[in-house]
Simulated scan of single mutants.
Amino acid sequence: MSEQSLLRLSIAVTALLAAFGITVGLVSGSFAIVFDGFYSLTDAFMTILALLVSRLIVTSAEPTAKGKLIDRFSVGFWHLEPMVLGLNGTLLMGAAVYAFISAVGSLLSGGRPIDFGPAVIFTIVTVTVSFAMWLFCRRANRALNSSFVALDSQAWAMTAALTSALLVAFAVGHAIEGTEFEWLSPYIDPGALALICLIIAPVPFSNVRQAVADILLVTPVELKQHVDAVAEAIVERHGFLSYRAYVARVGRGRQIELFFIAPSDWPPRHLSEWDAIRDEIGEAIGGEGPDRWLTIVFTGDPEWAD
């Protein structure tokens, strides 16, 4: 299954679960379930956006890609990927913070009574579907190695875990009805929601941090070390004076620019010889494909490289 097909499936399942959750939440009076549905809708919307960006990236990388949009973005659409991932994580963290504040307010005002029967049914269905989707997306992404699918898989795992916590809370609430502990029932829904929000709020932070690093073109340490090692070997092997390397990661794209400083008294060479050296460098760096942007320049003037 392709990245886009997997994202489409995830969107459809998420939208169905979200609609189911909001309906059950309104019927049962559970704000925790309503929040779960709203959270899922937000995730579905961002997955649709991720799907559009993924399609743009794949389409623009095709050799036969043409059109006005391609002409306007001639260096590709990689920069949109970290923007979407960053926006996704920020929205999810913001929703969790807002829901936590609401839950605390409800606890301070005496809680919120709910109908635990429909709530338990909802959580059982959601846990089952979420766990199945997490396993499916995780297995499929072993071959795809997609940041979007990885984030989506993480979202399904988080949904399964948090809904499991809701299931336990609602089961306890249902069990204490008609007992001496029934006075605790109104506090179960906002208490569970507050606890869930505390857990999920920091989860997207790592994705937001990586997205910001990509947007700011922060140089990946491991990639820079690898490119430096390749460039140093080329300098020693072919007798260049020095080199300059500029490396950045933008979403799934790797942007690498290499400048090799040659002695000014070198005799002229045929273009095929320079291309052979370029091929040697490209093979040593590895990762050839639509997501690698590699520029190799040979010059006798260091100012062209600085």
Rank of each mutant, 00 (worst) to 15 (best):
N141C: 08
L195A: 13
V129N: 00
D152K: 11
I124D: 04
V172L: 10
T126H: 07
A165V: 11
V168Y: 01
N145M: 11
T159R: 09
L166V: 08
L166R: 01
Q154W: 14
S146T: 06
A171Y: 08
L193I: 04
A143Y: 12
F131A: 14
A192K: 06
D189S: 02
Q154G: 13
C197S: 02
C137F: 11
P190E: 03
A192C: 07
I200G: 12
L166M: 02
Q154M: 15
L184A: 01
I176A: 05
I196H: 10
I124Q: 07
P186S: 00
T179E: 00
A194H: 09
R138A: 04
A157N: 14
R138Y: 11
A143H: 12
N145P: 06
L184C: 00
G173R: 00
S153A: 08
M133L: 06
A132D: 06
V129F: 08
T159G: 13
A150Q: 13
A132G: 10
L144I: 13
V149L: 09
P190A: 02
L198M: 03
E177C: 06
I199P: 09
L195R: 03
F122W: 06
R138D: 11
A192R: 01
S130D: 04
S146D: 01
A150Y: 12
I188D: 00
A155N: 14
E177I: 09
G173A: 07
V149S: 05
I176M: 04
T123N: 08
T126P: 03
I121V: 10
F136P: 00
A171P: 06
W183F: 07
W183P: 02
G173W: 01
A192D: 04
N141P: 04
A160W: 07
V125S: 04
R139A: 15
V127W: 02
T126V: 14
R142Q: 15
W134L: 07
W134I: 06
S164T: 15
S153L: 01
C197D: 03
A155H: 11
M133C: 03
E177H: 11
L195Q: 09
N145D: 13
W134M: 08
